[in-house]
Amino acid sequence: MQIFDQTLHARLFLGTAQYPSPEILQRAIEAARPGLITVSLRRESAAGHGQKFWDLIKNTGIPVLPNTAGCHSAAEAVTTAQMAREIFETDWIKLEVIGDDYMLQPDPFGLIDAAEKLNALGFTVFPYMTEDLVLAQRLVDAGCKILMPWGAPIGSGRGLNNPYALKLLRQRFPQQIMVVDAGLGAPSHAAAAMELGYDAVLVNTAVAKAGDPVAMARGFAQAVAAGRAGYEAGIIAPQDNATPSTPLIDRPFWHQAKGG
């Protein structure tokens, strides 16, 4: 898929947190072959723990999407984004402004404030948002060309909590690049998002905390590809009555045994 001047080789975006080990993270990346990898920033001690991780990610050759995880205000998010831009050498930023710590629910007001500032500073903003239609419009008004509604709260594994609203959003914003971000648990959730016409899905916990993260990474990659293929192929409309799939004309004994 194409995001502005950059070609991404897959529609699965993969987070890098919470894996049992760096080795399993690396193998999961190899298995998933994601189009984009998400990363973050933390306070660094002079021991330099973050440097090895960054080497591992750089060696994959896959583009990165830094996030502003943990930010609770537009000001924090803007400073974090600027630091991320310098470190990761990308204008892309996954904008997280959290409004509720229990649900890790995005703060829609802080999000719009931060999105306006970051767009003015030349960032390409990937806003992590609720599935609210008006919020989406305000983010587009603020200059966002990408929208990332949640499927469900981060790490909850619930899948698509509100498929009706997600479907509506997709229909109302056909020009935007749209990614379902967060809350997915099973590969089928990813396939469902792709079948709705979303351009990509972003998954972390469902892979990292799976019994076998490497196998789950592969499963999500296959589900994303399958869901996208279904969307592109044109899914039939559901109906209430049966329609025979096997042609019954000229079938021997057809209706001859009635009553017998």
């Binding site: 987070g15 890098t16 947190a17 919470q18 894996y19 993270l25 998400t38 990363v39 973050s40 920033l41 933390r42 306070r43 660094e44 330099g48 723990h49 973050g50 440097q51 991780f53 960054w54 990610i57 830094p66 996030n67 995880a69 974090t80 630091m83 470190i87 990761f88 981060i154 967060a182 972003l202 972390n204 916990t205």
Partner: peptide, 9 residues
């Protein structure tokens, strides 16, 4: 504040 790359979702 001095920050460096870390894992993220």
């Amino acid at each position: 504040d001095i920050v460096a790359p870390m894992q993220g979702g």
